[in-house]
């Protein structure tokens, strides 16, 4: 346990973090430059807004999932389904004439309950991937039953503002993304809860011996992830004014990719939401470029898969060298 502390001495991690963040920024810049050279419409302001909007949705969910990964429970495979169900509930509430605040609150509370149930399962020691796989199927089933495969319309001026307004020229989604990244960074680095999350992820036995309620931390990490995913659902409805079960195709993969490319250690303990945010920007930029360059769906998936695979192997390699 003593060696644990020495391994992550502040100077060392700071250097590595800086190096990693720079590498991520370099990837974004390379993609942007390449994109600018080969695709004239890639560097236009409109496209830039489109990229940051996409990055914001992926990013918000990925920031939430970072808590799960940091606390050592790998990833959640029910993010997409939670976002879908939340979008549908939100659209239904608005469609029934509710005003914005109660609708948002009800959706967030529903997501909180869903997250707490999954978190409780995992806290009891069950495999997180399998639990969220099952929960995802069940949540998607519920979404299907509620809508009966119909599109839910939501007409609301306030929601419209939330979805399309641009204070200071920046879309609201992006504001929320930036603010949440900042808040979660403070929570992770300056609060007891954040430090507990990291300790639970890096060494469960130590955490338990220090009197941390490990199960409670795991439960909260799933609640955070679920609520952030619900926020994505709300923002999507606010933007497009409707919700259906076919929304958020491939969202699970994009969010997991953002977390993994961001370099949060999959074994838990090391990583930050800022890195995940950068990972989300990398994934969104890459996706946007591949769409602009009219890559086939297969090529896009192969490139995304390869990027994730390389990131996982590279980060694992860096970590195991550090442990030596």
């Amino acid at each position: 346990m003593a060696t644990m502390v020495q391994e992550s001495s502040p100077g060392f991690t700071m250097n590595r973090t800086r190096w990693f963040n720079l590498a991520l920024l370099a990837i974004v810049i390379v993609v942007l430059v390449l994109g600018g050279i080969t695709q004239p419409q890639f560097l236009t302001p409109d496209n830039f807004i489109a990229i940051v909007r996409a990055a914001a949705l992926i990013g918000i969910a990925a920031i939430g999932m970072t808590f799960i990964t940091l606390s050592g429970s790998f990833v959640s495979l029910s993010t997409q389904q939670t976002a879908i169900l939340s979008a549908i509930l939100f659209a239904m509430a608005l469609g029934a004439g509710w005003s914005l605040v109660p609708a948002v609150l009800v959706v967030l509370v529903a997501a909180l309950v869903l997250g707490a149930v999954q978190g409780a399962f995992v806290a009891l020691g069950l495999n997180s991937i399998i639990t969220t796989l099952g929960a995802g199927a069940a949540i998607f089933g519920i979404a299907n039953v509620i809508t009966d495969n119909r599109t839910v319309q939501a007409r609301s001026d306030v929601a419209d503002f939330l979805g399309t307004a641009r204070p200071l020229g920046v879309p609201i989604q992006v504001w929320i993304f930036v603010i949440l990244t900042a808040i979660t960074m403070v929570v992770l680095y300056k609060t007891t809860f954040g430090r507990m999350v990291k300790l639970v992820g890096s060494n469960r036995d130590t955490a338990r011996a220090s009197g941390i309620r490990v199960g409670r931390i795991i439960l909260w990490s799933f609640v955070i992830a679920s609520v952030f995913a619900a926020l994505c659902g709300i923002l999507l409805v606010a933007q497009v004014g409707q919700a259906k079960v076919l929304n958020f195709q491939g969202f699970n993969i994009q969010v997991v990719a953002a977390v993994l490319v961001g370099g949060t250690a999959i074994q838990g303990g090391a990583g930050s939401t800022l890195r995940t945010a950068l990972g989300a920007i990398v994934i969104a930029t890459l996706e946007n470029y591949m769409l602009q360059a009219q890559y086939e769906e297969g090529t896009r998936l192969v490139i995304t898969g390869a990027v994730v695979g390389i990131a996982v192997i590279a980060f694992h390699w860096v970590q195991s060298r550090r442990a030596r």
Binding site: F74, V75, I129, I253, V256, A257, L260, I266, Q267, E296, E297, G298, T299, R300, L301, V302, I303, T304, G305, A306, V308, G309, V312, I313, H316, W317, S320
Partner: peptide, 26 residues
């Protein structure tokens, strides 16, 4: 060989192989 957690590694191959399928026939 690498000792990478299989849950994580196979997420990458899940994406990759699905892409291969789409390349083989759109």
């Amino acid at each position: 060989k690498t000792g990478i957690n299989s849950l994580v590694f196979t997420i990458a191959t899940l994406i990759l192989m699905r892409g291969v399928a789409f390349i083989m026939t759109p």
